[in-house]
Amino acid sequence: MARLFDTHSHLNAPQLAEELEAVIQRAKEAHVERIVIPGYDLAACERAVALAEKHEGLYAAVGFHPTDVRGLTQKDYERLAEWSQLDHVVAIGEIGLDYHWDTTTKEEQHEAFRRQIHLAKDLNMPIIIHDREAHADIVRILKEEGAKEVGGIMHCFSGSWEMAKECMNMNFMISFGGPVTFKNAKRPQEVARQVPTDYLLIETDAPYLTPEPHRGKRNEPSYVVHVAEKIAALREMDFEELCEITWKNAERLFRLGNV
Rank of each mutant, 00 (worst) to 15 (best):
M1G: 09
A2K: 03
F5N: 04
D6Q: 15
H8P: 09
S9E: 13
L11D: 10
L11G: 03
N12D: 01
N12S: 00
A13P: 00
P14V: 14
Q15C: 00
L16I: 13
E18D: 15
E18V: 15
E21T: 09
A22W: 14
R26M: 15
A27Y: 15
E29I: 05
E29Y: 03
A30I: 10
H31E: 09
E33S: 13
E33K: 12
V36N: 08
D41K: 10
A44T: 08
E46G: 05
E46R: 14
R47N: 07
A50P: 00
E53D: 11
K54T: 14
E56Y: 02
Y59A: 04
A60K: 00
A61V: 06
A61L: 09
G63S: 08
F64D: 07
T67E: 12
G71D: 04
K75M: 12
E82T: 08
S84A: 15
S84H: 04
Q85C: 08
L86C: 04
V90S: 03
I92T: 07
I95Y: 02
W101Q: 07
D102P: 00
E107G: 06
Q109F: 05
A112F: 02
F113N: 01
R114M: 03
Q116K: 02
H118V: 07
H118A: 06
P126W: 05
I127Q: 01
D131P: 10
R132L: 00
H135W: 07
H135G: 01
A136I: 01
D137L: 01
D137Y: 03
D137F: 04
V139R: 06
L142A: 10
E145S: 06
E145T: 02
A147R: 06
A147Q: 08
V150N: 02
G152A: 13
M154F: 11
H155M: 07
C156E: 03
S158G: 10
S158V: 07
E162R: 11
A164C: 06
C167P: 03
M168F: 01
N169M: 05
N171T: 08
F172T: 11
M173V: 04
G177L: 10
P179M: 11
N184Y: 07
Q189A: 09
Q189V: 03
E190A: 11
V191S: 06
Q194Y: 00
P196N: 09
D198M: 05
L201G: 02
I202A: 15
P207I: 15
Y208E: 12
L209W: 13
H214T: 13
R215P: 12
S222I: 15
Y223K: 13
V225Y: 03
H226E: 10
A228M: 11
E229F: 05
A232I: 10
A233C: 09
A233R: 12
E236W: 01
E236Y: 05
E241D: 11
E244G: 05
W247E: 08
K248V: 08
N249E: 07
E251A: 11
E251M: 13
L253H: 02
F254C: 05
R255C: 13
